[in-house]
Amino acid sequence: MPYTTGMDPKGPIPVSLFFTCLADAFSPGVCTATVEVLERFGATVRVPLSQTCCGQPAFNSGNRKEARAMARKFLLSFPDDGFIVTPSGSCAAMVKHGYPVLFRDEPRMLARARAIGERIFELSQFLVDVLGVTDPKSDFSGKVTYHDSCHLRRGLGVIEAPRKLLRAVPGIEFVEMEESDRCCGFGGVFSLKYPQISCKMTERKVERILATGASYVTSGDLGCLLNIGGLISRIGYPVKTIHLAEILAGKTAGKEDAG
């Protein structure tokens, strides 16, 4: 379903990149890949450099005072117009659904949060639903399976967009894993508070991934991938985690920080 922007469809597509603190620090290649893909489809990408963290870890752990401080900073870091695109379903869902909770008693901030929430999109959602991309023009090749990040799937309702894009890459053999929509066990602070349960869930996820015989597991959230990848790397399983943005960018993307 195309998103009505009220903007000239032939004009420039102004996009502010919300690169996420996690990707910034641990996987800058994901951010670079996101920019590359956005520019490929005509977006004019700017990167607000004052952005930090959306505050989700604090919000999800019940520390709202701190979350609110970060949310306030986030809302002031982004411009009043254009799209905001991020390579994370979880962070987008935080802004869209978490901020209105944080600011429910502050009408002015609430209005701003809602307005920004209207303009924020996860990358695959933006490409498919807003830009109408059907062919991501990626030269990536390999056998790929997809893990539904909980917040992308249930928080934003994005289920088909990433699959459509993956299926449209000629070099990709796309294979669904069983229970692709089952949580990988990350859950942010949960993985630190209850690591054994978290690991048990991750093990089940990795079993399902291995059963597909895929060489790559991809997802729209880096958090899931760091978690799944952490277990894969510890055991040394023959499968790699790779962010959806990197697949869409293609072979040459994100090589410098692979690992």
């Binding site: 990707a23 620090a25 800058p28 450099l49 978290s198 690991c199 991750t202 990848g229």
Partner: peptide, 17 residues
Amino acid sequence: GWTERRDFPAPAAEPFR
């Protein structure tokens, strides 16, 4: 607890910003 059975990624040498 995280690193009991999982690795944690090393921070990138040069962050995206």
